[in-house]
Design a protein around this nucleic acid. Structure first.
Lengths: 348, 348
DNA sequence: TTTAGCACTCGTTCTTCCTGAGTGCTAAAG
DNA sequence: CTTTAGCACTCAGGAAGAACGAGTGCTAAA
């Protein structure tokens, strides 16, 4: 059933009032805020109906109404006006984008910090790959006679390095050989294929060569594992406390713990699809998020990889504003990654 | 003036009781806990004197006593028994040490996470260098005709890389030349010396070469800046909330914000000297820490660098236990970095 | 269909009172 | 001189109650 225009207006007024004040909205407040030429009693009747429809809720009998998750959902889907960022806001975001950002996986973590500062909400950021990551290239650089650096590059243009110190010495030709072998046998393999291949090669190679190979390949495995686990960066967790719904510790603590452990355990709401996505209250899979909302936006990194950045907050969030900011920010990132020439689009 | 043995015993009992219960300690409790054969009235007299000396405090007239910062200080300096870790605890730390740790600056951040999990307190970790860091070596790896990877190594054995994409193309010989130039002119220079040198070279080099050089040198500057700023990693901030002194938001919030921003702004209590250091309450420089204590331990990374890892908590902390853990952990890290052969002592 | 009026609900806040842990002091005992 | 028992006193914290007021639902009239 379609809502009457007046009901929509009222629902919207409730949501927007509540977003601002964090307090239940009464019928009088609606009369004052929305430009309706009816009395509060009429509004009360309408609100009672909206409550029956499950769009509004009463925290207790004699309080105003607050939007239910369904109410927010309807608001987000139909009622919300696309928020236009002010010039200052876009300027702020642009500045933030141009500053600071350096290496690929730092991009995600930096982006999170920036967004958190901009929005005063905790953020999370991660990268997802549509396909499995593989190592595309190995370079070995000699440091001293008993140490060398391995530089690995994945197909997603991510570069990682590691310094190895050995108990025995290696010569430059040995390293050269090793490098050739690695590039021949261990490129283009997914995580699952690496270990079997390692075993296979071990049969042919000598003891000493094998130990070197396995050192580097172990590192490759680490790198790929890290990428597959979609390491999550979080930032700005304490900013939760600034919002009235998390003033009570019982509310704040589990969520804060969840957020800070999210980074470790990689447990994350499954995400895909383009652009901005909003999950309201119980729409979230994780129990800890059932009373909170998540707004996230994805951006293209290139190389089949997508970055996702999101903010977490109370269901009472300024969805319009946040969605606009995230979206704009994500577009900026996509652009940065897109045309690699500009500025500093480098990756680690 | 030296305290009588009985006063010491009482002070110690107060501290240890309070550490456990987080509640003011009364005279009766002391009689029960310490093996003293005197009545509570006697204890009361003694406690009154200890209060006059500034070692104990009363939250309000009719409550028990709690240690003042000076009381804690005296306890830590003279009364505290060196805590011996149980075999399980050392085992736990050893496990943690061998696991996970990979790259140099990840060591610090990982170590922080581990300690935070072990202690249930927020941690911070950073590296300090006694001397200025310099770039000791540049390697340039060709990727495609319009992109290359720069691998930089500092004297502290820290390796960083970055992928550069260009709008024009470069040839292998060009890169070779560039690499030689960088290694000749831009190694061994501190942050302050790099920029002047860059200007000097720009005079001789052609337009195009100069733009490449400045790209890489800018990166070098970034790397050195990052190292000089002693980037601080924090972890486990939400675990603050588990402790009763931070149950009230007014107490918790400023500290949490301070900790989370510490990572950004690099503002940190100046640290040096070996081994474990304890800062109690007002001994901390930062205002936000005036009601908290910091326990930190340093470890040797090698190459003139020192790592520092610390925990932050209420003044009521189990100093003995935490100091022992941190110290043991730091020793483990020093050992790891010391003999480079073992396990995985690599650095980024 | 809208509105005014009114009784009712119920969270919030303020006050009051009570309790009990713990103190400081005094005076007697060791 | 030190220790102890006794006692009056203090004060945070919790419980209970009262007053308040914002907001509702319902009824009856416009």
């Amino acid at each position: 059933m379609e809502l009457s225009d007046r009901k929509k207006l009222i629902l919207r007024a409730v949501v927007e009032n509540y977003i601002q004040t964090a307090e239940p909205v009464g019928s009088k407040a609606i009369v004052a805020s929305a430009g309706l030429k009816v009395s509060s009693a009429t509004i009360r009747n309408e609100m009672a109906e909206l409550e029956n429809l499950g769009l509004l809720e009463q925290p207790h009998t004699s309080a105003g109404r607050i939007p239910s998750p369904q109410g927010y959902r309807l608001y987000v889907n139909e009622l919300m006006e696309e928020h236009r960022l002010t010039i200052q806001e876009t300027q702020k975001i642009n500045d933030a984008l141009h500053l600071k950002i350096r290496q690929m996986d730092q991009v995600m973590s930096e982006a999170g910090k920036i967004i958190s500062q901009l929005t005063r909400y905790p953020t999370f950021a991660l990268a997802t790959g549509s396909k499995k990551a593989v190592i595309s290239r190995y370079d070995l650089l000699m440091v001293e006679e008993n140490s060398f650096i391995a530089v690995l590059m994945t197909d997603g243009q991510v570069v990682k390095n590691k310094l190895f110190r050995l108990s025995e010495t290696v010569s430059a030709p040995q390293l050269q050989l090793l490098s050739t072998l690695l590039n021949t046998s261990f490129t283009g393999l997914t995580l699952e294929e690496l270990t079997p291949e390692l075993l296979k090669v071990s049969a042919h190679a000598g003891e000493e060569a094998y130990s070197l190979i396995s050192l580097v390949v172990s590192f490759a495995i680490e790198v790929l594992e890290e990428m597959e686990n979609h390491v999550v960066h979080t930032a700005g967790i304490p900013s939760l406390l600034a919002h009235p719904e998390y003033q009570s510790l019982e509310k704040a603590e589990p969520l804060m713990n969840f957020l800070s452990e999210m980074g470790e355990r990689g447990s994350l709401p499954a995400v895909q699809g383009k652009n901005v996505k909003i999950l309201i209250g119980p729409e979230n899979l994780a129990d800890e998020l059932k009373d909170s909302s998540v707004i996230m936006a994805s951006y293209d990194i290139g190389g089949g990889m997508q970055g996702v950045i999101g903010v977490v907050g109370p269901t009472r969030m300024d969805y319009a504003d946040l969605a606009a900011r995230l979206s704009y920010f994500a577009e900026g990132l996509s652009r940065m990654f897109g045309k690699g020439e500009l500025a500093e689009p480098a990756e680690e």
